[in-house]
Design a binder for these strands. Structure first.
Length: 132
RNA sequence: GCAGUGAGCCGGAUGACCGCCGCGUGGCCGUAGCGCGCUCGCAAGAGCGUGCGAAGGCCCGGGGAGGAAAGUCCGAACUCCGCAGGGCAGUGCGCCGGGUAACACCCGGGCGGGGCGACCCGACGGAAAGUGGCACAGAAAAUAUACCGCUCGCCGUCGCUCGGCGCCUUCGGGUGUCGAGCUGCGGCGCAGUAAGGGUGAAAAGGUGCGGUAAGAGCGCACCGCGCGGCUGGUAACAGACGUGGCAGGCCAAACCCCGCACGGAGCAAGACCAAAUAGGGGCGCGCUGGCUUCGGCCAAUCGGACGGCCCGUCCGAUCGACGUGUCCGGGUAGGUUGCUCGAGUCCGCCAGUAAUGGCGGACCUAGAGGAAUGGUCAUCCCGCCAUAGCCGGCGCGCCGCAAGGCGCGACGGCGACGGCGGACAGAAUUCGGCUUACAGGGUCACUGCGGCC
RNA sequence: GCCGGUAUCGUCUAGGGGUCAGGACACGUGGUUCUCAGCCAUGUAACCGGGGUUCGAAUCCCCGUACCGGUA
């Protein structure tokens, strides 16, 4: 299937970001952190929150582009909202390792979040994440 | 050849596969909708076919980061708010002339400083308008002063010379005292002086000669400085001349004075469309009977207060508070716009030393918005490192009568294969500047030194 | 994106052209105590970086860096 990445596959609103941060399942890896929130319908969507910690505009753009490419190549069919927080090592890591880490993190998080586990019902403290 | 100066330029290339965002009187599909035809139906309308076809999808074509896009330091455009006029305050700028929409920018010139030079650097108005500061050191830090020193006068004193007198004498002289002179030392002075010393970042024009008791612009020459007119220059300023013995330190990125400029906010400015919910306004509809002396009374309905709720009591209303329907305006989420044709880019000619301007021609060159302009790979290119190897002269050893040859060593150059690296940095309303960052490459002009012809 | 502000010992701060950059807490050493705490004495330790103005800069000016805040 020709994997594309149109605008409909992006998380764009601030409320959607905070929704994923608050309600999603988070997994951390060496190159990135991932928040995954299953949606009732639609397609998989990606949002990237690259903080200034990883570098200037050039570095942040590069991280976003590589992550978009990885997401596009993964071609997830399930309706998941995914927010990725890249780490600094993502910039220099080989592309194949980024692809693998993203795949395993999303897979683990989606498997964990799919069944209505009790941990999801526990009233998590609402996060005040201001990351953009 | 080496070292350097200035100006201007580029800032990886090619290909494959897979993507993103605009654009197009471009094609295809095609939803809502509209037109036409047919069928069904009494009709409203429904179904089918067909044409156009918002939105949307696919294809095709074409476009898609920078010299600094950066820092947000200046100046503008644009937008909203404020505003009779003027002043004060505040901020910025500050040699002169020019350029410009404007500027703290640019160009040319002046002056000062640096460099052998090509060239480079400079916040470069005013300190005899006022206020203030100048630590420590030093005599004194701005009304000049007088510590050492130098000089003069007076006093004291050691010594020397000369002279008078007394005493002694081997007649050479010795010695005591008095006087004069000289030199040294010490003290005193409302005395002179500011050359020299020392302190300091800085000490009241500099150098030399004369002069003087010693000195001093006290006099003179040159230099510096002030003033005056003259000449050149639009001017800043420069030059020569005359004149004045010197006017009085530094700091204004201390307060300040003088001159000039400036209203505030910023595209998250602002404009338009506008869901849901709440609230506002208009209109329509719903919403009483009896008695009466016309003040009201009774009941009903609605609303409010008391109350956890019901009953009840009280208050108000019964054409207006209420309920309901509908419309309108403001406005939030959200969307659209502002948004890229502009103090535009390139080429040529003309004016000007130049910045720049004028004329003519050609061109359209990113418009995103949790934010595109790319990802992955291959080949090439460039730089650095370095192995094998090759080349060069040098040193040492051996062979040779010699020319020379061989071996070893450190040095320099090239360097297949290989390894590492390829900067600074990402448009965010748009321009003009400034500043800062930057691997490497290449162009033109010029300077100094050395070599060769 | 736009618009502001701050920076001084390890921490919190004072100082706004010259005096040893001062104080508090913390830390080190010694003393007091049987020991610890406390107290006393003493010491180490800083002006964000680079330029400029000035005789002299933590202070004034310019450039940069880092951090913080406001604004939908």
């Amino acid at each position: 299937m020709p994997a594309s990445f149109p605008r409909a596959a992006r998380i764009r609103r601030r409320g959607e970001f905070t929704g994923v941060f608050d309600g999603g399942v988070k997994r951390h890896g060496r190159l990135m952190s991932v928040f995954v929130l299953p949606m009732p319908a639609g397609r998989a969507r990606l949002g990237i929150a690259a903080s200034k910690k990883i570098g200037g505009a050039v570095e942040r753009n590069l991280a976003k582009r590589r992550m978009r490419e990885v997401f596009r190549a993964a071609g997830l069919p399930a309706p998941l909202d995914i927010v990725v927080i890249p780490r600094r090592d993502l910039l220099t890591a080989p592309f194949e390792s980024v692809r693998q880490e993203f795949a395993t993190l999303v897979d683990v998080a989606a498997r964990h979040g799919r069944r209505p586990q009790p941990s999801a019902d526990q009233p998590r403290a609402p996060r005040r994440d201001r990351r953009v």
